[in-house]
Write a protein that binds this DNA or RNA. Structure first.
Length: 614
DNA sequence: GAGGGGGCGGTTTTT
DNA sequence: CCGCCCCCTC
């Protein structure tokens, strides 16, 4: 038990051992927050307050969930073996809700064998409905409508609420689409991602006896990255822990960067109202960055007024001042980054793998890719199409989904479109005669009868990659012989199996990382370049008019800066070619917020050029 | 059913 | 400027 506390600082220790009910841990960047959460969970077990199955650990993303699970399981390994305990549930909200609804869904009228629709399926369904309803897709963009529907659902607004709330013909039409969309999901027995969460809440609200059952099982609810929860997730955690009061949440409002998809950092703050006796612990010791980096980051984030900001203290040395580089153009900027990388790797013993280039938009990556190729710098580009979203993979999955649920008209529609009418008929015939089989066998047989693979030309590199991906899918299927399990994993775990991903993994240890600021959350690097610090880019031009959104851009900048352990470079370009247009942007207001003496200027500054340009 | 051409849109992205 | 999506044609 004591080994769970060794190496923790006093605040961390207090958070791990606190036994008085609701607990809110405000954990700054690099302050060891996942460590606190997992150690607390393990401590509850070690001290005999809970058995592992009484714990429920939740977070938003698979990546974070996996990290959390691995760390916790290794902490619990010994005791689980000794006492023959089950391992606790540690996963993301959607997976938990899917588990819950497969079990208890019938109580609120759901089919146990519902399919889960992803964004692509949602769009197909919406387009499908719009055609039937004779709505033109010029004035009514399916993607926009999908967004509106999702937002409404996140706010627990039904189609009827939506129609009552908005007048205007555009909204009335969208409301009608929303209503039809929901009806169709019901008919198909499909749930979209948001449904998983809101039906989870609905279940608990409408069936108190079921809620009670789960409250008694999960006597300790622990949530990581609480600033990323949306309304439904907030309600879920609140409902589950209402009886026990044992809710532990960890988060940092200053790192909330996902409000555009429904996350609301105010959930972190409203907990105090819902649990008046909540204990609040601040983690302000930073193990990651030098004090110089933290000072610069603080100057940026402290301008935010709508949420508390922690003042972090570094446990590392003072370090060197972050550099601000003025580039003449976007190519000049990329050249500077290459030069610095060469210097750092050649003379400062920094490994390329320890370096990251972070940008606001994916479109900025191209220039860096070109420069890295020219300079022979190995790199990995993050972002791009996901394995399960690849056309060929999705096609095969649709074959399986119609086995699972023959009413799935969206999958049938896709099969007809991508396989042709004749092959679709063959698939239909096959379904009449099939027996229970393992997933892999099912795929093989269906590929055979639909002669799908013949679509591809082995001599074309592109097609070869697609065949490779299908092969990969087959080997995933080996791990999930049960079809329902397989489809659930496909929908919710979304692990990467693509060939590209394998190549990436091989390079991880030796290449510079290129990614968006969003993608960098939770990671750390010895050297960080934040590029394109310009008005219109960071902050992004679509955020300039709105105070809330500007604050989020500022948090995004802060998240990027606090990824850096030793060296931080901030760059901007006076002139930039972007989407084929030359722009002359002012330097970012976030840079102007930093007192000049905290930075070191490099690049094309004019003699005595004022820091404050405005 | 495939392949070419025109038009348009382009922030971030997880489940 | 690039890439995707849709539609048209053969």
């Amino acid at each position: 038990m004591d080994e769970l506390l060794t190496g923790l600082n006093p605040a961390q220790k207090e958070a791990v051992t606190y036994s008085g009910g609701p607990l809110l841990v405000l954990a700054g960047a690099g302050s060891g927050k996942t460590r606190v959460l997992t150690h607390r969970a393990a401590y509850l077990v070690a001290s005999g307050k809970a058995e592992p199955h009484n714990l429920l650990l939740l977070t938003f993303t698979n990546k974070a969930a996996e990290e959390m699970r691995n760390r916790l399981y290794s902490l619990l390994e010994k005791i689980v073996e000794e006492k023959n305990f089950d391992r606790p549930f540690a996963g993301n909200f959607h997976t938990f809700c899917a588990y819950l609804l497969r079990r208890e869904g019938p109580a609120i009228g759901l089919s146990r064998s519902f399919v889960i629709y992803d964004e692509d399926d949602q769009l197909s369904l919406i387009k499908n409905l719009m055609k039937k309803m004779n709505v033109d897709d010029k004035n009514f963009k399916p993607a926009a409508i999908r967004g509106v529907i999702e937002h409404s659902k996140n706010d627990f607004l039904t189609a009827e609420d939506f129609l009552n709330l908005h007048s205007g013909s555009w909204h009335q039409t969208v409301g009608e689409i929303y209503r039809t969309y929901q009806q169709n999901l019901k008919k198909i027995a499909a749930l979209d991602f948001t449904d998983l969460l809101i039906y989870g809440v609905k279940l608990f609200k409408e069936k108190p006896e079921i809620l009670k059952k789960y409250q008694r099982i999960y006597r300790f609810v622990l949530v990581d990255e609480y600033q990323d929860t949306n309304k439904a997730q907030y309600l879920l955690t609140k409902l589950l822990s209402k009886e026990s009061g044992n809710l532990t949440v960890v988060g940092d409002a200053a790192q909330a960067i996902y409000s555009w998809r429904g996350a609301d950092y105010r959930n972190l703050l409203s907990l105090s109202a819902d649990f008046p006796k909540i204990k609040i612990i601040n983690l302000e010791e930073n193990y990651r960055s030098t004090q110089n980096i933290l000072d610069v980051s603080y100057q940026v984030i402290c301008k935010n007024r709508k949420h508390p900001v922690l003042k972090l203290k570094s446990l590392q040395e003072k370090g060197v001042r972050p550099v601000v580089f003025k580039a003449l153009s976007e190519t000049d900027e990329a050249e500077f980054v290459c030069e610095k990388i060469k210097q750092l790797t050649d003379f400062c013993a920094v490994a390329p793998a320890e370096i990251a280039v972070l940008y606001r938009t994916n479109a900025q990556s191209r220039v860096f890719e070109e420069a890295f190729i020219n300079h022979n710098i190995p790199y990995i580009l993050y972002g791009g199409v996901k394995f399960y979203e690849r056309a060929e993979v999705k096609d095969v999955i649709c074959l399986l989904r119609v086995i699972h649920n023959q009413n799935d008209i969206i999958s049938w529609g896709r099969i007809e479109k991508n396989f042709g009418k004749r092959r679709k008929e063959k698939v239909k015939n096959y379904l009449q005669s099939r027996k229970e089989k393992e997933t892999k066998v099912l795929i093989e047989e269906m590929l055979e009868i639909s002669s799908y693979l013949q679509k591809f030309d082995k001599d074309k590199e592109e097609d070869l990659r697609k065949l490779e991906n299908i092969k990969e899918l087959l080997s995933v299927a080996e791990n999930f012989p049960d079809l329902t399990d397989f489809l659930e994993n496909v929908a919710l775990v979304q692990q990467e199996y693509s060939l590209q991903e394998k190549e990436k993994r091989k390079k991880v240890g030796e290449a510079v990382k290129l990614m968006t600021l969003h993608a960098s959350k939770g990671l750390e690097f010895a050297v960080v370049f934040i590029v394109g610090l310009e008005e219109g880019l960071l902050p992004h031009y679509q955020s300039l008019e709105d105070e809330e959104r500007l604050e989020e851009e500022r948090r995004l900048c802060y998240v990027g800066m606090t990824r850096a352990k030793k060296f931080l470079f901030l760059t901007f370009a006076v002139r930039r070619l972007y989407f084929g247009q030359t722009n002359y942007n002012d330097l970012s207001r976030f840079l102007e917020d930093i007192p000049e003496e905290l930075l070191k200027k490099e690049g094309n500054w004019d003699e005595d050029e004022d820091w404050e340009l405005e």
